[in-house]
Design a protein around this nucleic acid. Structure first.
Lengths: 334, 334
DNA sequence: CTAGCAGAAGTAATCGTTTACAATACCAGG
DNA sequence: CCTGGTATTGTAAACGATTACTTCTGCTAG
């Protein structure tokens, strides 16, 4: 019905109803200092009968604690980030609300969201940056509230704030290396957008493995943007010429796009062509064919980030921590 | 670094720096009333050099507008709800922050989150309820801020607040009907948890179709909980006895579980057994085999919800709107 | 018997905005 | 040159909590 009855019940109403002062009500509610049992009872009574709920804005204004943490990721519909968020939730959600936003891999949108989030509505920001906002981010971390970087770590921010990232270089290196050991002669690599630090590091890892272990490997590269569509386009691109022995996609979504395109074109994955992916693919167990991928464990990563947040909130001056988590290379067969 | 320099820049600092009153600064910032050009310039100058950001809590306290909307769903990692959120974002995100939370299909957790969200931190709540909190929800809608129900619509809340739901009964009916027309003799149905209104309505639809079109159909039912694991258990359950001609799962995740289990057991979907699902399955195009499902279009649903939110915010006393969107039955073959 | 103190409750200032209201300046008409 | 209006700007009171500080008990120890 959404009826009026505007003007909410305030702590004053409760105080009046219980015949005590607002200070006492506040103390009962927060347990900040002892209150006689009978008064406690009267206050609690009043709270429930009036249906009082404290006003978060007022409390935040006064205490400078928002009891919320912000999470800003490039693509909230990507299961990878979703799992990270779940991980953070695992650790934080009892005491904090999570304010989430998605930049859609756009620096501009990210900037807008960063500005909104830094209007004192959160206590800490967990951020996987789309890139291009290093200055703003640094300013937020220094002036507003601590930032914990996840997944993406631009050089200019490294060691200036807490972070949890993967060993992208190493994992990509190992992934390519493992394909090389299979004896492939040609390889197609689908890169992510170079504005993302992960894409850049993974690309370096790939190239390094090639240089070191198979300098004569015929490599073709396609610059994607971490979306499934760009994975499809990459495959179309590669299949223009002689089809490569193997294709690797530098994130899960592009791998999905690639697989779907390959299957549509009649390839049997793991037989006609070898496929590698940085990151697991949801429901991949449903597919016939084999896949080699870097196992990312985003939920663990999220938990780590959550712990860093807690630590940082507890002690704002603790020294900066940078976690670099190592991944496994996994082979899946059916 | 997270250095101190605590005490943020306030509107007072800006006013002082620009040599005007706080009222003028506020007016420049919000464009609420005309200000002479030179003052505007000086204020803007001050804002940028000082790096001023308004304090959202103070503004919310004063204006009673949080510029945020809350979204509470039973499972934020389910792509279905994720797409709904995307849809809401499409419509709302320019002007509002989205505060999201997941109840994990638990009434208790939902209640806690409802309480937190209703502490005046949002202007409107979009809710897919896990069930069991009808009273609390009604109170929030009446006393705190408007609620728009999505996906789930408990009877006791129908017509009391805005809603966007699917025609669950009809869709489930049609899905079963379409299988019956294939000439199946036996059917396994994997239900969702009856605390969810959708599960109940879908179950009714299924049963009604059976009664009406194939009263002699051998039906077996399994009570799941909308998770993939429960889909797997259901298949195990069904395969204890004589395996049914067809199995349908009443949501996407349970269908994923069922498919995965069936494939593991060597069934070729669409050949050895017919599969139906309420809701599409991400990346299903990757699978060999055919599937018949109810196409849900969650993103559209989210957009509709977003529009209702906007309308409700514009006019709190507008009459209650209930959208019931119809679905298509889709057949997918490979 | 009273000073002193601890415990419990109340008073009122404060957080950073917005905005009703007051004040001021400027200008035209008489 | 004064009056009344309009256009800007300023002053200060809210919004609803928390909390430093004050006040008021009642009790104990000297």
């Amino acid at each position: 019905m959404t009826t009026p009855s505007r003007r909410n019940i305030t702590i004053r109403d409760v105080a009046r109803y219980a015949g005590v002062s607002t200070a006492t009500v506040s103390r009962v509610l927060n347990g900040t200092s002892p209150v006689k049992d009978d008064l406690v009872a009267r206050v609690e009574q009043a709270v429930t009968t009036l249906g009082y709920r404290p006003n978060a804005a007022a409390r935040t204004l006064k205490t400078r604690k928002a009891n919320a943490i912000g999470i800003l990721v490039p693509d909230i519909s990507n299961p990878y980030f979703m799992q990270i968020i779940k991980g953070i939730e695992d650790v934080m959600a009892q005491d904090y609300s999570l304010l989430m936003a998605s930049s859609d891999e756009s620096s501009k949108k990210e900037k807008r969201l960063l500005n909104v989030l830094s209007e004192d509505r959160i206590d800490c920001l967990v951020l996987a940056t789309a890139g291009g906002n290093d200055e703003v981010i640094r300013a937020i971390d220094e002036k507003r509230n601590p930032v914990v970087l996840i997944d993406r770590l631009p050089d200019s921010l490294a060691n200036r704030m807490d972070s949890v990232v993967e060993d992208n270089f190493w994992s990509a290196y190992e992934l390519v290396h493992s394909l090389i050991r299979l004896g492939i002669q040609s390889l197609g690599i689908i890169h992510g957008p170079m504005s993302a630090s992960t894409a850049f590091q993974r690309a370096s890892g790939c190239m390094s493995a090639v240089r070191q272990h198979a300098p004569k490997l015929r490599v073709r590269e396609h610059l994607g943007d971490y979306t499934a569509e760009s994975g499809e386009r990459a495959v179309d691109d590669f299949l223009q010429g002689e089809s490569p022995d193997a294709i690797i996609a530098m994130n899960n979504l592009m791998a999905v796009g690639a697989i779907s395109r390959l299957m549509k074109r009649g390839f049997v994955i793991g037989k006609d062509i070898t496929l590698g992916s940085y990151g697991a693919i949801e429901n991949y167990l449903l597919i016939d064919g084999s896949l080699r991928y870097v196992e990312q464990e985003p939920r663990t990563l999220g938990k780590l980030a959550g712990k860093l947040v807690q630590r940082r909130l507890r002690d704002p001056d603790a020294e900066v921590v940078s976690h670099v988590v190592k991944q496994q290379i996994v082979s899946l067969h059916r």
